[in-house]
């Protein structure tokens, strides 16, 4: 069984920054990541609001730099999928791919995953026209009609991105205004290929082998319609990866972990950072700040443990 002072669970920007700071403090630390470090940022085509990069940088390039930087200061990363976090006396125990890891403190940076819309056809046609990653799958829809569902930053940014390939992009949103940042909205409204369909929800995705159309309903008039499309990109929000704990931990109604300003959760020795944390703004820039804050708080915590 491996034992470390601190284990970071999750290798997105929050976890990598916690790792960077902890490594620079010469803490005994290990980062466990279920895939390759990166997280949700890997699905972002272009990041243009992370300070210091005046030219937009691709999400995968940005996070590759973060990983390289943290590793450069000695951060160790293992590709292991943590399934459970439990208490073991005064220590925390993680079970990952059948192996056990012990630590004095844990920084939970497990992030979020896309929420499913939960309508018929969505699961059946995943990979056959239903997608959660425009960066990955956009080029398959060259000169085709696509639909994007959602109204937040991701939905609107990816709708604009898809105009590089698609003939037309219909953005279907359940309200009469978008939530995305104003500058992103302006770009969508001025893009000839983007058509916003207001006050409308998708009710069913149709297609035998591949997506052919989507049934929609106007929530104000009740009018139902069928929209022909080859692709449907879903950006209807995210859910936290927070169901790992073998003990009670304070979370908000949607399952995001509550912390104090030093990223401490309700459980001693457990810290939460990044998208999995209960907060208003989920961005790379907030994630990195929280990672640094948690690493510092953990250092103080460990010092107090051994007077």
């Amino acid at each position: 069984m491996e034992k470390h002072d601190v284990i970071i669970v999750g290798g997105g920007p929050a976890g990598l920054t916690a790792g960077l700071y902890a490594a620079r403090s010469r803490m005994d630390i290990l980062l466990l990541e279920k895939l390759t470090p990166g997280g949700q940022v890997l699905t972002t085509a272009m990041v243009e609001n992370y300070p210091g990069f005046e030219e937009a940088i691709s999400g995968s390039d940005l996070v590759a730099k973060m990983e390289k930087q943290a590793r450069g200061f000695g951060l160790q990363v293992e590709i292991k999928s943590v399934e459970k976090i439990a208490q073991e006396g005064s220590l925390k125990k993680m079970i990952a791919d059948g192996e056990e890891y012990l630590s004095k403190a844990v920084i939970v940076a497990t992030g979020v995953e896309p929420k499913l819309l939960g309508i018929p056809g969505e699961k059946e046609l995943r990979g056959k026209g239903v997608s959660y990653c425009a960066t990955c799958d956009g080029p398959f829809f060259r000169d085709k009609e696509v639909v994007v569902i959602g109204g937040g930053d991701s939905a609107v940014e990816e709708a604009i991105y898809l105009t590089r390939f698609a003939k037309r992009v219909r953005l279907i949103h359940r309200r009469d205004q978008l939530r995305a940042a104003k500058i992103v909205q302006e770009r969508a409204f001025s893009n000839e290929k983007v058509e916003v369909v207001w006050d409308t929800v998708a009710t069913r995705i149709n297609g035998e082998q591949f997506v052919q159309s989507v049934d929609v309903k106007n929530v104000k008039t009740g009018r139902e319609d069928n929209v022909e499309t080859s692709g449907i990109f879903l950006y209807v929000g995210v859910k936290p990866n927070s169901d790992l704990f073998d003990f009670k931990i304070d979370a908000d109604q949607r399952g995001f972990l509550r912390t104090d300003e030093n990223m401490r959760t309700s459980v001693e020795g457990i810290y939460a950072v990044g998208d999995v944390r209960s907060k208003q703004l989920r961005q790379i820039v907030t994630a990195t700040g929280e990672g640094a804050t948690a690493a510092f708080a953990v250092q103080k915590y460990l010092e107090d443990l051994t007077p």
Partner: peptide, 27 residues
């Protein structure tokens, strides 16, 4: 019919035996 990547297909004796769509853990 690949419309989403990564798609990982297992071919056995010339046929698709199973298909995994998206980046998922090793398990």
């Amino acid at each position: 019919g690949i419309f989403s990547i990564p798609s990982i297909l297992l071919f056995k004796e010339g046929q698709v035996a199973t298909q995994i769509v998206g980046a998922v853990p090793k398990k």
